[in-house]
Simulated assay, not measured.
Amino acid sequence: MQMKAHKDEKTGTWYFVVSAGKDEDGKRRQIRRRGFKTEKEALRELRKILQQVDENTYVKKSNLKYVDFLKNEWLPSKEVTLRSVTYKTYRSNIVNHIQPYFENQEMERITAAAIEKFYVHLLKETGLSERSIQDIQKLIKSSFKTAVKRKYLAYNPAEDAGAPKVHHKEMKVWNLDDVNKFLESAKEDTLYIVFLLALTTGMRQSEILALRWKDIDFDENVLRVRQTLSHNGKTLIQATKTKSSARAITLVPQLIPELKKQQRINIKEKLAANFDYEDHDLVICTSSGKPINPRNLLRNFYRLMFKADVPQIRFHDLRHTVASLMLAQNINPKIVKEILGHSDIRVTLDTYSHVLPVVHKQTASQYGEMLFGSQQ
């Protein structure tokens, strides 16, 4: 087929008309494009369209606005598959960040370069956290991928958009001495069992605050992570963050008597509250049986850190502390991954890569001693 573009003498621009076979009704299909500044530009677009027609990837221009697609098609399709917390986060990111930037832009006109500029905008002008920016990047990629599947687009520009490098905050963890000082300082606190669980199991805050007695098997000394508490402390979610987050964790022997002590406390408080008790079978709860407000937990945590005179870290860093101490003791990263509930071993290795060089040195030294004996 001879490729040919024509010049519109009235406007001085170039255009082309090309046959694209027949549509589903058997009618002849023609593709027209106008408004190119040069013949070369028109021919480049013509070649691209012919290739798409040949590969059956050509899609008809729809003029569909990206934000309309997100709000009317993509987001509703996710509602049945996502946890309510994740769905609300997606909706908030669309309304507060994507819509103001891409308002009224047609989806097929959004290029990889435009998406890259949006990522830079998020990084430099919004003050969003690293995690929030990554969440929006995932949303963008997923939505454009869906648009390609539904034949609104011929290709996914988000796949070619380079995301700006987000500088990771340096991870802060406690050493063994810090852990012991903190636990000793927290021993008489009403939420001591929370900190003990965090520093022996590596569980997330939301998992600890949603732990039930029926999730603990005292015969096998195992607990099972099966539900979580929402960020605002008002909703118990009958699901975990991911499939891998639903896991079994073997308890350290020293934790068992403390759990049984907590169980006796809960029984006394339930009897005292009588009909005013709201029974969710929670291990960690108020005297009336309701979930603990995460803000109240954090207030205790920061006060006890100051009292113990240990480095100031986030509650989530207790989880990092557990992983770092385990890896430093040569515990297999795959076991650490399963305890933490990571979806992929690469997450564990990437997150705690700073610990691994020390582990490798220890392993090499131990293996050398096994083969050749210790050197004086």
Rank of each mutant, 00 (worst) to 15 (best):
T111Q: 08
Y101I: 04
S62A: 10
K40F: 06
Y155C: 06
N266P: 05
F118T: 04
L282C: 08
A113L: 12
I110L: 00
L259H: 10
N96C: 12
M305W: 00
E24A: 10
N330R: 02
R131E: 10
K7P: 00
K214V: 12
K337I: 00
L46R: 02
F144S: 02
D309K: 15
T286M: 03
S185P: 01
P291K: 11
Y367A: 10
H280K: 03
I313N: 00
E220F: 02
M171L: 14
N300S: 15
A163Q: 11
L318G: 11
H280Y: 15
I339E: 08
Y367E: 07
S62N: 14
K71V: 08
R346Y: 13
L340A: 04
E269A: 02
R212G: 04
L251N: 13
K290M: 14
C285I: 01
F218K: 07
W14E: 00
R83I: 01
L371C: 03
F275L: 14
K48Y: 13
V80Y: 12
V358H: 12
K172C: 02
L123I: 06
E41Q: 14
A272S: 13
N72G: 11
K40V: 05
V358L: 06
A239F: 07
V310H: 07
V120G: 07
I256G: 11
A5H: 06
A20F: 06
D279K: 10
S365W: 05
N93R: 00
T126G: 04
V85R: 13
E24P: 14
G35T: 15
V225M: 05
A5P: 11
Q105M: 15
R295T: 13
L199E: 04
K65T: 03
H360I: 12
R247C: 09
K71M: 12
V120I: 14
T57N: 03
Y101F: 15
L318N: 13
T126C: 09
R91T: 11
L43R: 12
I193W: 07
I265A: 01
E108T: 02
K117Y: 10
L223R: 00
Q262W: 04
G21S: 05
D350K: 03
L199P: 06
D177Y: 07
Q99T: 15
R226G: 09
T250R: 14
K22T: 06
I49D: 08
E9C: 07
K27G: 11
F182S: 01
D281F: 01
S244M: 09
T201C: 08
K165N: 07
L327C: 02
T242C: 09
K268I: 11
R212K: 14
L153V: 04
I292Q: 08
K165G: 04
D344H: 10
Q137C: 13
Q329E: 15
P294W: 00
P311D: 09
I267Y: 05
E278R: 13
S92R: 14
Y87A: 13
P294S: 07
L236E: 02
Y15E: 09
L183N: 05
